[in-house]
Nucleic acid binder design. Structure first.
Lengths: 186, 186
DNA sequence: GTCTATAGGAGGATAGAC
DNA sequence: GTCTATCCTCCTATAGAC
């Protein structure tokens, strides 16, 4: 029951992940999805309308992945460890992180807001895990959990950047596991 | 005596920093620099030739800035602190970091290599500072300095991403200063 | 070295038929 | 809802004169 609208969003999300928003043209989305032009512009009056839907889909995927690793009955440190050491396709890049360097995305509130919101939500998932670890004495308690959460998110996002820059997926793992080691008995 | 060639590189570097490589057209560079088309294609047979020169210039600037904060007679911890807490225009973004999400850059060795190389050199500047701090007992010595350097670089790169995503420059400062706090007496 | 003219293709749509 | 035709602009050059 995947209608054309859904196909366009899914294909758009994939292409935008791979190439960015600006570099992804309506024509490419049509070709890759097999949906015609008439259908495209019927469902999405302008490119930015598809962009908003596709980016929102990618943002949801990022939050869902974080929820999967950060939620559960395990101690906070275990959840934090799972988040940081989780396997990631470093060279593929974050589904939304790179869009923060796409001018057209930055300049359109409908495109950038879902991204900021997704990062905010991931930080909010990290925070209780970190706080729990702090209360258990597993993580230094003299630093605010919210700021530690920001740092953890940054390490992962920056790890993607370094890994792609040097075409070396191990750099993300290295950054994340070092951050974990630093947190775990700092 | 800034000749047209130099003007094109400088203008190109600025525009590529602001909008990315793919989104920067030769026409824009000509308009912004006041250099004509004939001159442009005389000095740079193709867009990628200007791109290589402009990106190399931005990469050099990143390395030079790191050198300025990480080099000196001060103890390693002080130099590391200076690097992490250095004022950065978070919303403007890293001059080269965002290009790792530009397909055309990733796919052209002449464009991506200077970026990977610059990050490698910054990591190499961080390493001795960290090592010195470790020998002084100011930073945990059970983690390899090279891996800590990768983490430090990642925090800064990721801080740019988060700051831009949420249009909040303080996120980069928060991530960097938290990383410093975690390192400084972990 | 630099200028102007030209050109094929892609990008982002709009229009009207079915 | 979807199709095809058409449109104007910008992109990335190339050509030939000065």
């Amino acid at each position: 029951m995947s209608d054309n609208r859904t196909k366009l969003i899914e294909t758009g999300a994939e292409l935008i992940w791979q190439s960015g928003y600006t570099a992804t043209s309506p024509r490419q989305v049509m070709a890759a999805s097999g949906v015609g032009q008439g259908s495209f512009y019927h469902h999405f009056p302008a490119k930015t309308d598809l962009g908003a839907a596709a980016i929102a889909a990618n943002a949801s995927a990022v939050v869902a992945a974080a929820e999967a690793t950060l939620t559960g009955p395990e101690p906070g440190l275990v959840r934090l460890r799972r988040y940081l050491l989780d396997e990631r396709d470093a060279l593929a890049g974050c589904k939304i992180g790179g869009l923060t360097y796409d001018r057209a995305v930055l300049d359109d509130p409908r495109l950038i807001e879902p991204i900021g919101e997704a990062f905010r939500r991931v930080a909010e998932l990290l925070e209780p895990a970190i706080q729990d670890a702090q209360e258990a004495g597993a993580v230094r308690a003299d630093l605010p959990a919210a700021e530690l959460a920001t740092m953890v998110l940054s390490v992962v996002q920056g790890g993607y950047v370094l890994a792609r820059a040097r075409s070396d997926a191990s750099l993300l793992r290295q950054a994340a596991s070092t951050a974990y080691a630093l947190l775990a008995r700092g």
